[in-house]
Write a protein that binds this DNA or RNA. Structure first.
Lengths: 255, 255
DNA sequence: ACCGTTGTTTCATATTGTGGAACTCGACTC
DNA sequence: GAGTCGAGTTCCACAATATGAAACAACGGT
């Protein structure tokens, strides 16, 4: 198990393994006892591990896994991987349209944005990353409704502006249109003055797993919703193909 | 940045950080160059890190994050956390009924089982963990349909046995029953001789995120489906409350 | 004010890690 | 098949580095 010239590392790794494998935070004393190391040594080693973000301490001074582990986990989350693969495509759409581009996925009856490229114009959408939005007011959300990623709501719909869809019936009728032409629009339905377009992205198994969309001021976007829609369908299927090739082994929790 | 008595650890941590933060595997030489360490030193340090499962090598000998990071990620996956919290409750249901108990979540138009406690009887269900199952043949799946976790299918349904639900209409009518009484049953619909019962589990935001169910031979279970159903509703809401208290910060990708 | 518990810093010591050089292994060339 | 290069590992004399006892600091209990 142990080799030459690495006593310090062996001991540090042992401490690290104890902390990471433990379900609960571990105290200094537990670690020192468990490893049988001198308290002074334990202290120095733990401080070094903490300095390098391999460990950190909770409010009570007990040790827990550090930010480097969190970073690893974030990097290996299936959605981040999709987001990273999508990044260059979003960039391209951003360059072609000048507007804010988003990639969104369904989560718990809402839509959340997992990747964004900002408008080249000064006037553009805010940073939507991780912010949940009512799907019926969002082009991205309507796409997810239309392709069966989100359960349709039943009661009256929340009216965020006077243009928001008000009833499930209106939503259903719009969904039919979206399915037919392949992209969704939202005209000042989330916020006055804000228009958006979106198209679906398919996962490895063919089901729709995400939506790709552009949003910007109605003043600029209103006239070209259809053109941008066609653009998004193209880029959306390009992204789908990319995912089909280079997606993580097996099917993760998509859809 | 650096302190006394930890040169070796500082250097090792530097190597580790480079590997973890990199998107791609990194070769020995890149690491030695990047850190400016002697090749002999680099070799010893990397070997130690690998020995302790902090790093590993891919097919080409390049370094990537090791199993300890994967373990961390698995531990912090929202569903594993749910599964771990649920474990004692499954045990209790297993003890009370003697049958196989499962916790299942929706994934990509199927149901997957994320936790299981086996029957105390010899005759019991196989290990279903991670195996996807057609939802319309499963009590767990029907619960997820009934509470809006899965999009209803449209075409004809796959007939796994002569008792399987055949049409979306039949499914919809059964869903109405399930919503009313709070639990779902499946009588030899997945496999001849196998009955099952299931009830919903709610996440922190109140939406249904999982289903809790019992399955076993029709010969034993058929007479007590309703009793077990009521039992599951109780335990299901106990689990829901547990999740409401002790679930990870913010809402993860549930539902 | 006293003690016990927990954690950090100091410092003399020799154990431990270091890096140059020698070595091994495989791939490529002629 | 001998010769050459590049990548990586092992050896070993040396001293720089990590070590642990003990002193110190910071609490909390009684």
């Amino acid at each position: 198990m142990s080799a030459n010239g690495t006593q310090a590392i062996d001991r540090a790794a042992q401490l690290l393994a104890l902390v990471v494998q433990a379900d609960e935070p571990i105290s200094f004393t537990e670690l020192a006892d468990e490893t049988g190391l001198a308290r002074s040594t334990t202290s120095r080693l733990l401080a070094a591990l903490e300095r390098h973000h391999l460990l950190e301490r909770d409010g009570n001074g007990a040790y827990i896994s550090g930010p480097l582990f969190a970073l690893y986990a974030a990097r290996h989350d299936p959605w981040s991987q999709v987001a990273r693969l999508a990044e260059p495509i979003l960039e391209k759409i951003g360059a072609e349209t000048g507007e804010t581009v988003n990639l969104a996925v369904p989560r718990s009856h809402t839509v959340v944005h997992i990747a964004q490229v900002n408008a080249t114009y000064v006037l553009g959408a805010r940073d939507w990353l991780q912010v949940p939005v009512p799907p019926h007011c969002s082009a991205l959300g309507k796409v997810l409704y239309a392709f069966g990623c989100l359960e349709l709501p039943e009661g009256a719909l929340e009216q965020l502006t006077s243009h928001s869809l008000a009833t499930p019936a209106a939503l259903r009728s719009e969904i039919a249109t979206i399915r037919r032409r392949g992209y969704a629009t939202a005209r000042e339905e989330l916020e006055i003055g804000l228009d958006a377009v979106a198209a679906p992205v398919h996962g490895r198994d063919g089901n729709v797993i995400a939506a790709l969309g552009v949003s910007g001021p109605s003043a600029r976007l209103r006239g070209q919703l259809d053109d941008v829609g066609r653009l998004l369908i193209e880029h959306g299927s390009a992204l789908s193909q990319l995912l089909r090739r280079r997606s993580p082994k097996e099917g993760p929790a998509w859809g």
